[in-house]
Amino acid sequence: MTSFIDYVLGGFGSGMIIALMALALVLTWRATRVVNFAQVGQAMFTTFIALSLQTLTGSWVIALVGAMVAGALLGVIVQYLVLRPVKRADTSGAIIATFGVLIALQAAAGMIWGGDSRAYPQPFGNTAITLFGREWPVSAYDLVVVGFAVILVVGLTLLFTRTNLGLAMRATAFNPEVARLSGIRVGRTLTIGWALAGIVGAVAGVLVAPTSAISPNSFDILLVFAFTAAVIGGLDSLIGAVALGIGTGLILSVVSGYSDSSNAPVVALVLLAVNLVLKPEGVFGHHKARSV
């Protein structure tokens, strides 16, 4: 029982990362009805930028902010140059194009920073917290990760529900034609959605890097986990992405704890398959609260 609790708690940090990456996928999906499979590639690229900044300045905060700016820019570039011009009748085209971007970004990162895994310096304590006379499988850094995720989710929720931009984004996602007829600059709104997703992905990348390592392919598996979480959450739902992201992290942590971490992708695949068969619209999708 003790180990079970440890495994569950140990999954929170990674669950939050999955949640953030799922959030990024949901943001682009809501904006443009495209699942951006290049999202982890963008996050990987901005994390390398963060690593370079960190090495240069020694400041974790500057690195994080730099990654966020780069993430926003990269999101805008990918949306504007790649996804916007895809011919709409070519339904497979958008999906294929995002994989093209992923391949190109991974190769570009390999060119610039090399193919080897690099350690990312840990900004805060990585030791387990001791409380009530026992050690918990949670570090101060895990708490920071959770904190960031909570801030981002709350901030995005407020943005979507309380601001004109949020309303414009939601209307554009649900019915772009009515949005245009209402005078909303739809193209710009979509691009902002991608920029936001880029920022969230960049944060996720910088947060996850110290706990694993960073290489051009190191986030591939995160894409599978995040996609699983986003789809089970309903793809349209921010709350769903976060809840299922954390849930996926916990499940994978327990599975890895009791068996072996190499089983995680198989478990994610099974979760995804079962969900797609039983409830393709997702837990939070469709008839439940869709607007955040």
């Binding site: 011009p85 194009a97 391949i103 060119m111 193919g115």
Partner: peptide
């Protein structure tokens, strides 16, 4: 070397995007 080794994939990725567009 690290440029050379990644160049094919970079070309593939860019070509895929270009072809789709």
């Amino acid at each position: 070397e690290q440029v050379t080794n990644n160049a094919p994939n970079l070309i593939y990725g860019l070509l895929v995007v270009a072809v789709v567009l």
